[in-house]
Design a binder for these strands. Sequence first.
DNA 1: AAAACGTGGCA
DNA 2: TTGCCAAGTTT
Length: 322
Amino acid sequence: MLQQTQVATAIPYFHRFLSRFPTVEALAAAELEQVLAAWRGLGYYSRARNLHRAARELGAANAGGLPSTARELALLPGFGRYTAGAVASIAFGEQVPAVDGNAARALSRLFCVEGTPRLRETALWELAGRLCRGERPGDLNQALMELGALLCRAETPLCDRCPVRRACRALSHGRVQAIPPARPRRARQSLRLTAAVWIRQRRVLLARREERGLFGGLWELPCSEARGRPDATLRALLGPRLRVGRMLGELKRTLTHRELTLRLYEVSGGRPPATAAPYRELRWVGPASARRLAMSTAMQLALATALRRPLADKRKEALSSR
DNA sequence: AAAACGTGGCA
DNA sequence: TTGCCAAGTTT
């Protein structure tokens, strides 16, 4: 949960998740859909899919027990170098580094680490590897991350209060602001989606995405990329005899690499197909059940519009209904 | 190995 | 409002 996510954001999810899946066995026994539902709104859903896979591998291999070395941990899905190092050092006391974004920034400044991204990466892990060879490698690793998060911050570092300011090479060289360099960001691609709002007997038609890529495994209003007229787009998805009515609303949402625009159209007509590629499943869902399904925040907002939930702040409402 | 992958907080 | 980043990993 902490991968690319601030601690404060993850905490409530963490508690709910652990009460829902208290053990590796419980997680392994659960359906992916339930795991994704518990992850709903947290983002980067591949983490939930990987964690679920890891639980199943562990259950099969050693009765749910975790391996205790970074080397073995790194074999599990979702465990990269950082996570494997963090678990090994913090939970098992292994003398291995764990360099997250915060630690990387703090180390970069302390030792004036510069150069190409690749060289810096190597240097940072090397430095962290030396530092963690003490009695409490887990504490060292956490202290480094904490230093980066609380004091050696990206925009406004608090060098006045830094306990290692006398050792900081970036500070003595006047390069604190220049290190580390901001990483280049790619421009966002716009993704325009046309979505079907098909309501029948108080239920809305939802679709489950395939388990990969954007929003993989999550439920949503059936939609596809807008090419040409909305009626043509939606008939290609749900059948040629579909009746496409008025537009019910539009939703814009910014993701890291996407500018998402979702246009909602009222549709009706006959019965939907058994399946609609590339979806894995179609299902009629009542509003109460919809609120419990695995769904992105974007789609929660869209659904709130589609079902015409009253109230100005649909965003807050959608989020609080988890 | 560059690009994709969500969402929220903060200045 | 906009940009940047967050206890990164996968393909």
